[in-house]
Amino acid sequence: MPRRLQGLSPSHASGSHGAVFIGRGLFGNPFRPGDPSPTAPGPMSPGEAVDLYAATLRGPVGRRYAETFARLLRGKDLLCPCPLGTPCHGDLLLQLANRSHPCSRSHAQKVSAR
């Protein structure tokens, strides 16, 4: 079963048996914990960053990206600098790549509850 691993750079991915680095670039989350929140005063929490990413992927343009990401990431481990055990867009991408109906509202709520 594919899983999320922790690593700080794409060079860590090459040592992780074909894991895909998702920290930045094509698969990166543009919403970063600690940045100013667009929805509330103060900094964004990790859960809010994941929720905003999930909402983006549910949008009309985002759905096309979600379909592409699912195809490219299906069956692969994902490597991200986020600490394990905290909300991460990698958890969303794992679900997206390995289920038939990605980015459902209930999934985004489940991921952000972690």
Rank of each mutant, 00 (worst) to 15 (best):
M1R: 11
R3A: 14
R3M: 11
R4V: 15
R4L: 15
Q6R: 15
L8K: 13
S9V: 02
P10T: 07
H12Q: 10
H12T: 05
H12C: 12
H12G: 05
H12M: 06
A13N: 09
S14M: 10
G15S: 14
G15D: 12
G15K: 12
S16I: 05
A19C: 11
A19G: 12
F21G: 08
I22E: 01
G23L: 11
R24F: 12
G25A: 08
F27Q: 03
F27E: 05
G28H: 09
P30V: 09
R32G: 03
R32A: 13
P33Q: 13
P33C: 04
P33N: 06
P33E: 06
P36Q: 02
S37R: 00
S37D: 03
P38Q: 02
P38G: 01
P38K: 01
P38I: 01
T39M: 10
T39W: 01
P41C: 04
G42K: 01
P43N: 04
M44Q: 10
M44H: 00
M44R: 01
S45V: 00
S45Y: 00
G47C: 04
G47I: 03
G47Q: 13
E48V: 02
E48N: 03
E48R: 10
A49E: 00
V50K: 01
V50D: 08
Y53M: 15
Y53N: 06
Y53K: 15
A54Q: 07
A55K: 14
T56A: 13
T56C: 07
R58E: 11
R58T: 10
G62L: 07
G62K: 02
R63Q: 15
R63N: 04
R64M: 10
Y65G: 03
Y65S: 12
Y65H: 11
A66K: 00
A66L: 11
E67I: 06
E67Y: 07
T68A: 13
T68G: 05
F69G: 04
A70S: 13
A70M: 03
A70T: 04
R71L: 12
L72T: 04
G75C: 06
K76Q: 11
K76Y: 08
D77P: 11
L78G: 09
L79C: 09
C80S: 08
P81H: 07
P81V: 06
P81E: 03
C82N: 05
P83I: 02
P83K: 14
P83C: 01
L84G: 02
G85F: 12
T86Q: 15
P87I: 10
C88P: 06
H89M: 13
H89E: 14
G90R: 05
G90Q: 03
G90C: 09
G90I: 01
D91Q: 14
L93M: 10
L94F: 10
Q95D: 15
Q95S: 14
L96A: 11
A97E: 02
N98W: 00
N98A: 03
R99Y: 05
R99I: 01
S100P: 09
S100T: 13
S100N: 11
S100E: 14
H101M: 08
H101W: 10
P102F: 02
P102K: 02
S104K: 10
R105K: 13
R105W: 06
S106P: 03
H107I: 14
Q109Y: 08
Q109G: 06
Q109E: 15
Q109F: 10
K110G: 08
V111K: 07
S112N: 05
S112C: 14
S112W: 07
S112V: 15
A113F: 01
A113L: 13
A113S: 15
R114C: 11
R114G: 15
R114V: 12
R114M: 13
